[in-house]
């Protein structure tokens, strides 16, 4: 199984939309992908969950790490487009108290602006 991510850019904001699933079999690839984008100097990142049907704790940890790195450098990470079941997992894990979650991509971009 391979990791698939659709990328988009609006102004200075890089939008990453992982497709289908981010489980522990692709979490390292996901971590490397995000880490490379941060190393390229992207400081405003939105991860859009609209195409994502499944994420496990290994994938969530990558997002937490990215949020921490971005925040330390004055940047930001926003998540958006989550289906209810995934949002619930972010809530019971306490991740929603650390990473800002917006309803839609539009809301996330307005938040960044």
């Amino acid at each position: 199984m391979q990791l698939e991510i659709v990328e988009d850019r609006v102004g200075d904001t890089l939008i990453l939309a992982p497709v289908d699933r981010v489980d522990s079999s692709v979490a390292r690839d996901f971590e490397e992908f995000v880490s490379n984008r941060l190393a390229e100097g992207n400081t405003s990142l939105v991860v859009d969950f609209a195409r994502l049907g499944f994420i496990s704790s290994a994938g969530m940890r990558v997002l937490l790490l990215a949020a921490k790195k971005l925040r330390a450098g004055g940047g930001s990470l926003l998540l958006c487009g989550m289906r209810d079941s995934i949002r619930e997992i972010f809530s019971i894990s306490g991740f929603d108290r650390i990473i800002t979650i917006c309803n839609s991509r539009e809301e996330a971009l307005a938040y960044e602006a």
Binding site: S56, I92, I98
Partner: peptide, 24 residues
């Protein structure tokens, strides 16, 4: 119980998976 902010320090573990299982 996992300490969420500290989870970034480690690649695996931290009890997050077990925490999720127990809550679900």
């Amino acid at each position: 119980e996992p300490d969420v902010p500290a989870l970034t320090q480690q690649r695996q573990g931290g009890g997050l998976g077990v925490h999720i299982i127990r809550r679900l």
